[in-house]
Design a protein around this nucleic acid. Structure first.
Length: 120
DNA sequence: CGAATGACCAAGC
DNA sequence: GGCTTGGCCATTC
């Protein structure tokens, strides 16, 4: 986990939009290619380990340019299995980045989980 | 301001 | 291992 100081700085930085959602968006937007993050990790990073649900709620109304597909559940499952026929499914997007899955559509978290860090 | 909502999580069976 | 239950708390209505 990160030091509280880093988290504090990060929050200060994004204080303009002190909304929980905005912070979530900031983090998701910084996820590197080929990596994934869990809802719980994001919640932890923001200082509220129990807010995983809110993170998911934030994703529900996320901007289109956000790589939301890199956010997965803790068990490695995909939270939102492509309901939109027009858009590529989350699995497809991840596979395109070189991420592979088990047969049961679960991701290999141990390999791809990203340690959240904010280095400007 | 109170009540409902939710792309989650951990514990229990 | 999978399914069910309760709790969490910011956002919305």
């Amino acid at each position: 986990m990160l030091s509280k100081k880093v988290v504090h700085l990060f929050i200060m930085k994004t204080k303009l939009e002190s909304n929980f959602f905005q912070l979530v968006y900031q983090i998701v937007g910084r996820i590197p290619c080929g990596k994934v993050v869990t809802y719980g990790d994001i919640a932890c990073f923001l200082g509220n380990p129990r807010n995983a649900r809110l993170v998911g709620y934030a994703m529900h109304s996320c901007p289109e340019d956000l790589p939301w597909h890199r956010v997965v559940m803790k068990a490695g499952k995909l939270p939102f299995f492509g309901t939109n026929p027009d858009l590529p499914s989350q699995k497809e997007l991840l596979e395109k980045e070189g991420i592979t899955f088990y047969q049961d559509e679960r991701i290999k978290l141990s390999c791809y989980q990203w340690k959240i860090e904010i280095s400007a």
